[in-house]
């Protein structure tokens, strides 16, 4: 895995905040450290993204962020996809971002298997049954 310098991370933070800025109570990407430990974590999980991500950083280096990202999206889709995947992937793994969007993660949701479903009590499933079978039978063939 490539080593990212402080200046690389600062440059990435600007790109990341352009993609995911602070908005309506949601933190900006850099506020949840997508450019720091989350960058390392994402690339640990997905080392295959490293090459495209590095290419995106190099492409955008020293350019106006909007102009650079629009040009990157048109000229090097793989690098743009790597950049956005690293950014959204890192962002949505943080507790701060998850809390802000109301996402608890793919948690287990135990249920009462004996609870009568609403579609039974309100007659919805009975209406399906009342309409009768809809398959074509083949017993005659």
């Amino acid at each position: 895995m490539a080593v990212y310098s402080d200046s690389d991370r600062e440059a990435y933070a600007k790109l990341a905040d352009f993609l995911i800025p602070e908005y309506n109570g949601k933190p900006a990407a850099s506020a949840v450290n997508v450019h720091l430990e989350m960058l390392d974590e994402v690339l640990r999980i997905r080392p295959d993204l490293d090459e495209g991500f590095r290419r995106a950083l190099d492409f955008c280096c020293g350019k106006d962020v909007s102009e650079a990202l629009n040009a990157l999206a048109r000229e090097d889709d793989a690098a743009f996809t790597a950049l956005t995947t690293v950014t959204t992937g890192g962002y949505m793994m943080t507790d701060g971002a998850r809390a802000a969007v109301g996402y608890p993660g793919q948690e287990a949701s135990p249920f009462d298997v004996d609870e009568i479903p609403e579609y039974i009590t309100n007659g919805m499933l009975d209406r399906v049954i009342a309409r009768g079978p809809i398959y074509r039978d083949t017993k005659h063939l």
Partner: peptide, 24 residues
């Protein structure tokens, strides 16, 4: 990105709005 679209159409504030409107 087709037909003259821009990164800003999808990302930035619009990305947050998309998440608010669709995720969950």
């Amino acid at each position: 990105f087709k037909d003259g679209g821009k990164v800003e159409d999808t990302w930035g504030v619009n990305w947050h709005k998309m998440i608010e409107e669709r995720f969950g």
